[in-house]
Simulated scan of single mutants.
Amino acid sequence: MMIRLVCAASTLGLLTRETKAQGQQLWLDYQVDYPFANQYLFEVTTSYQTNAWSSNDWRNYSITPTFEWQRFEFLDFLFNVPIAYTVQTEDFNSFELDPSVGVRYHITQNKRITSRLIFKLEERVFRDIEQDEWETSNRMRLKGEILISLNGPNLFQDNLWWTILDYEEFFVTDQQVDERFANRRRGRLGLGYRLDYRNRFELIYTLQSSRDEIGGDYSRLDNVLQLRYKMFLNPSKPKVPSSTDN
């Protein structure tokens, strides 16, 4: 327990260090999953994000189709294409397409504590709608996550509660795109509930630190409240754990 508290305190300090501006955001997600053939998963996530309790009219609308393939028992291959439209300010709107490929390495699975590492290579295609200008940039993302079943032996029980703890770093590998955060780090703590195989719910708090310049300080800190509803369409149970990644 002491080690977990120290790790949590260290992560909080890393995220809040040298931050100057703060914001509060609300994210609402609806996610549909279709597992098939005991090794594939097709998923579509729609999301609405906004600056809650703020006069800043920033808001984001996105849809993310995802395909997962469990090639090995301990390794999944990930392919997704987030598509987003963002109202940045009153006179600045943007469109972004972020195709990515990645892998998920399972450290522990099918147990009370599930732990894994996720690595992604992401290309960002960004358009300033008012100026009709396109920019591209490449980014790496590294994430470690832990899921803990609270009232069952694993994550595959009905009427199940679980906790979510993860940390992610974003690394721009070539150049940043204009008016977008170059690098970002994100820590999440949440609670999930599985009513049955078809219906699952998550409430997640995210502490997100960002910087405007690749070599600059982390100058912005966002507190994010995220609500997610997940629906599984295939009535047969999948062989492997499904992803809880956004």
Rank of each mutant, 00 (worst) to 15 (best):
F36P: 06
F36L: 04
A37Y: 06
A37K: 04
A37D: 06
N38G: 05
N38E: 10
N38Q: 10
N38Y: 08
N38H: 07
N38K: 08
Q39V: 02
Q39I: 09
Y40E: 02
Y40G: 05
Y40I: 08
L41Y: 04
L41P: 06
F42G: 11
F42E: 05
E43F: 05
E43I: 07
V44R: 06
V44W: 00
V44I: 15
T45Q: 13
T46V: 14
S47K: 09
S47C: 02
S47R: 15
S47A: 13
Y48T: 07
Y48R: 11
Y48W: 14
Q49A: 11
Q49P: 08
Q49C: 00
T50L: 12
N51H: 12
N51L: 03
A52C: 05
W53S: 03
W53Q: 03
S54W: 04
S54N: 06
S55M: 08
S55G: 12
S55F: 08
S55T: 14
N56S: 15
N56E: 14
N56V: 05
D57V: 06
W58S: 01
W58M: 00
W58A: 01
W58C: 00
R59V: 00
R59L: 08
R59N: 15
R59H: 13
R59W: 06
N60R: 14
N60E: 11
N60L: 03
N60H: 03
Y61G: 02
Y61D: 07
Y61R: 10
S62D: 05
S62H: 12
S62M: 12
S62E: 12
I63P: 10
I63W: 07
T64A: 09
T64W: 02
P65S: 09
P65T: 12
P65Y: 09
T66R: 11
T66N: 08
T66M: 07
T66S: 11
F67W: 10
E68D: 13
W69P: 06
W69F: 15
Q70N: 15
Q70F: 15
Q70R: 15
R71C: 08
F72A: 05
F72K: 03
E73Y: 14
E73M: 03
F74K: 14
F74Q: 06
F74T: 11
F74D: 09
L75G: 06
D76I: 01
D76M: 00
D76F: 02
D76P: 00
F77H: 12
F77D: 06
F77V: 10
F77R: 07
L78D: 14
L78S: 10
F79Y: 13
F79C: 05
F79W: 02
N80Y: 07
N80D: 14
N80E: 14
V81F: 11
V81Q: 07
V81D: 07
V81Y: 13
V81I: 15
I83Q: 04
I83D: 05
